[in-house]
Amino acid sequence: MAKWMKSGWLLSLVALALLIGACSPKETAGPITDDKTPEKVSVDNPSGDLAPLEKRAKVVIAEDGAASGAGFYIAKERGYFEDYNIEVEFAQFANSDDMLPALAAGEVDIAGGVSTASFFNAISQGIDVKIIADKGHNVPGKSYFTLVIGNHMVDVIKEYKDLKGKRIGVSSHNSIDEYIYDELIKHAGLTKDDVEFVLMSDFGSMLGAISNGTIDAAVNIEPLIAQGIDKGFHVRFGDATDYAPESQIALVLGSPNFMGEEKDISLRFMSAYLKGVRDYNDAFIKGEGKDKIIDIMTKHTALKDPALWEKVNVTGLDPDGKMFIDDIKKQYDAYKANGAIRGEIDFDKAIDTSITEKAVETIGEYDR
């Protein structure tokens, strides 16, 4: 996962052991035994669609306070999980690589991840996790993960081709960060030899580097982009959708057991999650109830300033959970071409959108 997203995932091994030990077997309301969407129930039920579970279930989510977790936070605060008799618990890990074995073992049910070579390598080497829904993409013209140029470059870099000879900060190799960077360079009509790739330790360090002229531009992320603009360090340049229009940046991942054996729980969980995502879209796309959603986001994320939420380009979250699946495969191919992938992936098995699609059938498609 992009480093700014992962920076909060710090948990001691002792705490992790306690967390795993505390995970109890799931209790269900009776399995869904066919491929049809269960009948909707009376709107007198809290959810308004599926009946709540007869016995309470706990779902453990690996989440670090990233803004892309909005659907989880909003669904929790608005009682959408509770409507289905689901209790959610957030767990933190040092990084996404540590998260994957716990997810595959069912110690964590749901997690967020981003495309990296190490993620794909884990799957190709037998880590069984399912890619199930969107957890972050750029909105055209309002990308939250995009290029910025230093204020000292505003009179120099007028077009993408003007990046030739410039130093561009990128936070990691063989990741979505470098993938976006590569697409940028190709769009500019340049080669990797025409620009200087500067590997940065994290997104935050880019602010100081761009302000003192150590780098000329950077592929950075919100809210650091908005903060850097406020401080006069950099400006947004173009938009990432100019050169990577359908990039799948973050993903909702599910454990194989949660997706395969606990469908009565996972279907209700996904229905609640999508309701949260839809409230998020209502707020940031339609402007409906925005203040209340910002209150929830300031409670759960690292961005505590409500005023700054009015300035950032927010993470795109599809209200029906749809992903850019072709782009996921394209990213995998790019890492493989760089020699960073060991083994092969059967994407027909790794990507499982069945629960997401069934949840949309149950609650209806979002009115866009």
Rank of each mutant, 00 (worst) to 15 (best):
M1V: 00
M1K: 00
W4R: 03
S7Q: 13
L10K: 15
S12Y: 15
L13I: 11
L19I: 03
L19E: 12
C23T: 05
S24W: 04
S24H: 12
K26N: 03
K26E: 09
T28F: 05
I32S: 01
D35N: 07
P38A: 01
S42K: 10
D44T: 13
P46M: 03
P46R: 10
D49L: 02
D49P: 05
E54Y: 03
K55F: 06
A57V: 13
A57N: 09
V60A: 08
E63C: 02
G65I: 03
A66R: 07
A66S: 07
A67W: 04
F81T: 00
Y84R: 04
N85H: 11
I86N: 06
Q92C: 09
S96K: 00
S96L: 01
M99Y: 09
L100P: 01
A104V: 07
G106A: 13
A117K: 00
S118L: 00
N121C: 09
Q125V: 02
G126W: 15
I127E: 12
V129T: 13
V129K: 04
G141C: 08
I149C: 09
G150C: 07
G150P: 07
M153P: 02
E159N: 13
D162K: 03
G165M: 03
V170A: 03
S171H: 04
S172T: 01
S172K: 02
N174G: 02
S175G: 00
I176C: 00
D177I: 00
E178I: 00
I180E: 00
D182K: 06
E183D: 14
E196F: 12
V198K: 15
M200H: 08
D202G: 15
F203P: 02
S205M: 11
G208T: 14
I210D: 04
S211H: 09
N212K: 15
N212I: 12
G213A: 08
I215M: 05
E222M: 10
P223L: 08
G228S: 12
G228I: 15
V235F: 04
R236Y: 05
G238F: 12
A240Y: 05
T241N: 09
P245S: 11
Q248A: 12
G254W: 11
E261G: 12
E262Y: 13
S266L: 06
S266K: 05
S266I: 01
F269K: 05
M270C: 08
A272K: 07
D282N: 14
D282V: 05
F284T: 05
I285T: 09
G287R: 07
D291P: 01
I293R: 10
I296Y: 06
T298V: 14
K299I: 06
T301V: 12
D305G: 12
L308P: 09
N313D: 05
V314P: 05
T315E: 08
D320I: 06
D327E: 15
Y335L: 00
A337V: 13
G339A: 15
G339R: 14
A340H: 03
R342V: 14
I345S: 01
I345R: 01
F347L: 11
I351A: 10
T353M: 11
I355E: 11
T356Y: 07
T356I: 09
T356H: 13
T356N: 14
E361A: 11
T362L: 15
T362D: 01
I363Q: 05
G364W: 04
